[in-house]
Each structure stands twice: as C-alpha cells, then as structure tokens.
C-alpha cells in the first residue's frame, strides 16, 4: 500500500492553474492525506480565498493525478480552519514566483508592518522604489504594483 509520503510526492505534480509555476505543495494548501486502501485515498485541502475559482480545477487535477497512479476512489475534502495563510508557502515557491515575474509575499502575517511601511521590491529590477496601484489584482491573491524605476507594472502575491 502506498504511504502518505508517496501520495505527497505524487501531489508535487499538481500545479496551481492560475500560477502554473507553483505546485499545490508550494502553496501549502494540502493539509492532510489519508490512505484508506490500495484503491482509495482522501486528500484534505484548504482553499486560499473563498471565491477562488482555481479550487475546483485543483480538486479535479488532484483526482486525475491520483487516478493515473492507480487509485480508484479519490476523495478531496476542504477544511476552512485554520484559514490558509501565505506563511505556509515554501521558500522555494516564493523564489519561483519571483523568477516568474510575480513579487512574492514579503512578510510573515504575524509581523506584518503597517501598510505605509510596506516595501515590495520589483521582481524585474529589484528596485524598492515601487508603488501600490490597486489592492485587487488579476486574481484574489494578488495586488497590482508599479515599479518607479523600470516603469513596469507587476503583480504582488499579497501576505494573507
């Protein structure tokens, strides 16, 4: 029978459909795995944002991936508490985000500085001379920034 670790490593193949450089493990949304038998497994995930349309696709992709690995019954359940936070993202995931052109979350939500003291470096030229354009970006998890030095607009993955 496959172990929990085997399942977790299979889940390394499941990416976020909106930010395909990140796996669901990089995001930290897989909360638990229960291997019930050779054919049956349950994956417990937590949604990032309540209305995130990517969650349905993610559940479906988890099912496809595990079905492709020989399981016949794959149950994906959601838990809401504790609420997902960007603190659960992997450091390597944050690095991948930056290389992809999205500024990664800059702070622990536990020691978030005052908003006026926020510094979000430009993912393209690393300048810290950047400006918030909108709290709401192309998806719920992102805010829109602009770099005052290289003049490029960019997405910032909000601390949440």
């Amino acid at each position: 029978m496959k172990s929990k670790e085997d399942i977790l490593s299979i889940l390394e193949n499941v990416c976020d459909p909106e930010v395909p450089v990140l796996t669901i493990q990089d995001l930290g949304i897989v909360r638990d795995v229960h291997v019930i038998s050779d054919k049956e497994v349950e994956v417990v995930i937590t949604p990032t944002y309540s209305g995130c349309p990517a969650m349905n696709t993610i559940s479906m992709n988890i099912k496809f991936e595990l079905l492709a690995h020989g399981f016949e019954q794959v149950l994906v359940t959601e838990i809401l508490s504790p609420a997902w936070t960007t603190d659960w993202m992997r450091e390597s995931g944050k690095q991948k985000l930056k290389e992809y052109g999205i500024a990664p979350p800059q702070y622990d939500t536990m020691n978030n500085p005052r908003e006026s003291d926020f510094v979000v470096p430009c993912p393209l030229c690393s300048s810290t001379n950047t400006k918030l354009v909108s709290q709401f970006g192309s998806t719920a998890c992102k805010a829109l920034y602009k770099c005052n030095d290289c003049l490029e607009p960019f997405d910032y993955f909000k601390c949440h």
């Binding site: 944002y49 995130c52 709401f136």
Partner: peptide, 20 residues
C-alpha cells in the same frame, strides 16, 4: 480598470462565502 477588478474580486469573495 482597478475599480472593476476590485469590485469583481469582492463579489467573488462574497459568492465564495455564500457557497460555503
């Protein structure tokens, strides 16, 4: 555009909460 995205995002959060 920014307001459009903001209001749409807030709409989604609320409809998401309603679904839960």
């Amino acid at each position: 555009l920014e307001v459009d995205m903001a209001l749409s995002n807030i709409a989604l959060d609320n409809i998401g909460a309603a679904r839960s």
